[in-house]
Amino acid sequence: MIDTLTNTVLFVMLVLTALAIVRMERLFAVVMLSSVFSLLSALLFVTLDAVDVAFTEAAVGAGISTVLMLGTIALTKPTAKRSRHTAFVPLIVVCVTGAALVYGTLDMPAFGAYDAPAQMHVGPDYLARTPDDIDVPNVVTAILGSYRGYDTLGETAVVFTAGIGVLLLLSGLRRRREDEDEEV
């Protein structure tokens, strides 16, 4: 009952925040609201027991991406451009996609079901072997850090490269701006 209650309230707040984001024209408010949006979705992940995803969502969604979006706003305009197209076709596309996604979830096993495919094949194996192999209390850590260590290393390398790339782009931009100022 408590789970249902928290999930419902959090989802209502999430939808309200999303509607507010859609309706806002001042982009700074949109950035603040999207930071709150990712905090809310992180809370939802916490209630769903996906603690590692919640960590990532809070760090990336509420932390880094807020700063990045603010940087983007500073380089462009702080207000949204009013679109001239009608929103009818996009609405249909979104509705159809949403319906398809919801239809897809109907076949999925219930939340936390013991006979779900994810619990049947490799899951028990990992659970059984982790205490002997790696000896850490959190199995997710063991999987990410050791069983799929190369995968994680690759991910980290990709993220690191992306960060370096963004930094290079930004610093190049600043230098160009300074040059322009000197010319003026």
Partner: peptide, 14 residues
Amino acid sequence: LLYALINFVSTIAI
């Protein structure tokens, strides 16, 4: 605890 840290960092960054 982690959220308290992230929240502080992002506010100061903004």
